[in-house]
Write a protein that binds this DNA or RNA. Structure first.
Length: 108
DNA sequence: ATAGTGACTGAAC
DNA sequence: GGTTCAGCCACTA
């Protein structure tokens, strides 16, 4: 499978996330129609390595909990979320259910 | 090709 | 809302 294309698609979707909103890895994978949640996370990892401008801090797991709290230089993601007006408690999005943004409804 | 691992998820307890 | 288990797919050894 063309992971390069997949990564680009993921970046595009993440860039479409409105401010003050969040989404899940699985939701993105599902919206793209292929790939898996793990691939999205991996895409974020390589994205960080490629120093893209993709707001990965708006992407959390299905529980609304922030992933990799102290890996890949992502511990400040919670700070970024609070900066955008998203309430974060103990590394987790409080109103995740309300702030959740489904990419499949706004897809590309 | 096989095994281990991981920014994940859903079901079962 | 935690922990555990089984899928999931790409990457590395």
């Amino acid at each position: 499978m063309d992971t390069s294309k997949f990564n680009d698609e993921v970046y595009e979707v993440v860039n479409l996330i409105p401010e003050g909103r969040v989404t899940a890895y699985g939701a993105i994978a599902k919206a793209l129609g292929y790939g898996t949640a793990r691939m999205v996370g991996h895409a974020m990892s390589v994205m960080d390595h490629h120093q893209k401008t993709t707001p990965a801090h708006r992407v959390v797991n299905s529980s609304g909990h922030i992933s990799a709290p102290d890996s890949g230089g992502g511990r400040w993601r919670a700070e970024m979320l609070e900066k955008e007006g998203i309430e974060v408690k103990n590394g987790k999005v409080v109103k995740f259910r309300e702030l959740f943004w489904d990419p499949s409804t706004e897809i590309i």
